[in-house]
Write a protein that binds this DNA or RNA. Sequence first.
DNA 1: CATCGAGGTTAGCGCTCGTTAACCTGGTGG
DNA 2: CCACCAGGTTAACGAGCGCTAACCTCGATG
Lengths: 213, 213
Amino acid sequence: MSRIVFMATRTDAPTRREQILKEAARLFAERGFHGVGVDEIGAAVGISGPGLYRHFPGKDAMLAELLVGISGQLLTGARRRMQEADRGAGADGADGVDGEAVLDSLIEGHIDFALDDRPLITLHDRELDRLRDSDRKLVRQLQRQYVELWVEVVRGVYPALTEPAARSAVHSVFGLLNSTPHLGRAGSLPGRGATADLLHRMAKGAFGSAAEA
Amino acid sequence: MSRIVFMATRTDAPTRREQILKEAARLFAERGFHGVGVDEIGAAVGISGPGLYRHFPGKDAMLAELLVGISGQLLTGARRRMQEADRGAGADGADGVDGEAVLDSLIEGHIDFALDDRPLITLHDRELDRLRDSDRKLVRQLQRQYVELWVEVVRGVYPALTEPAARSAVHSVFGLLNSTPHLGRAGSLPGRGATADLLHRMAKGAFGSAAEA
DNA sequence: CATCGAGGTTAGCGCTCGTTAACCTGGTGG
DNA sequence: CCACCAGGTTAACGAGCGCTAACCTCGATG
């Protein structure tokens, strides 16, 4: 379910640290960073308030670890997907990677993240300003690299797009994909697969229309 | 610029109440509802802290008025656009309104709002949970009506969409259009007109691809 | 078996923040 | 000229919150 700390699928029980991060993410997303007290976070994992300080130096550090983790995972996953596409393309005799396949893979990865970790998606663009300067700079840098990676791939697939237009288009598609928290909480969705499919088609359609004169 | 309280273009100077709402919106969007103190809001309009209580019963009331106002304006504007399209269609002999023209008008209206009142867009889906129950219910009701109005129009233009799919698509397009706060703060944008055009094309493309099998 | 550290507990400090109280002031209508 | 009120001011209170201090406990370890 949650990839808060580790990328690989885990089989062992989550550590207390991970429990805390998961619950903190949920609470921060629901009521905002300033709207949640440390006592509530502690209660959510069965310990009380100051017990959290055995695991984190402060409330800020939890938010920082969450946001840095999210940004890092998105970037790492995107880079891995590009490399996989490169390896796949190296096998045949084509003159480069299959740009459209890479873009599809990026979209799929972002959708997986948006559907599986909705609280983190919410935090990602809501609480960035609550970070210490150094942490915020780091997160912004990771985000920027993620965006630039997308821009590069998108411009490969849609050469008609200027670079500023491609960047705007990428941000807008992120807005589209990150709308998952606003989609019906559970019951109203037509199933995860169908939703992922719909989002994927819409993202592609949006890029395509962005590139048309 | 700002349509915080009145719909029509104003020529007279804004009242103190309006100044306060405008600055509060900006500050809330920048640092979150809990992250802004009443002293800061007061300072932003040249008075100090408790002076605000001559205009509002409390900090909560400012947020409530902002969010109710936003939702109401969006809904009112959308209804007006539908009526205008109906009147236009009544003139000729067609068998109904021009659905695509209505959808274009809805998209245009939402983009105008997203580009002109970015702080309000940010607040709109970020601080709703900080409202009193009654206010939150009202805002949710207005939002729901706005969404349903879009869903109706979208299904008219793209009959292939099921109702749940159309609703998801509408929410996703809102995410796309509401991405304006993430677009470069000012300089990097290729001009307001070009940005509005890009967003419009992307929204249409997203809907179109949502409707394809 | 003694020790020790990881991981808790509760009490409480200090600060911030929303709100109220009490007071001031300048323009305006009778 | 005076009463009044809209719209400010500063002082201060009370609640809530992040964090620290001091203490407890229990399982692992030499």
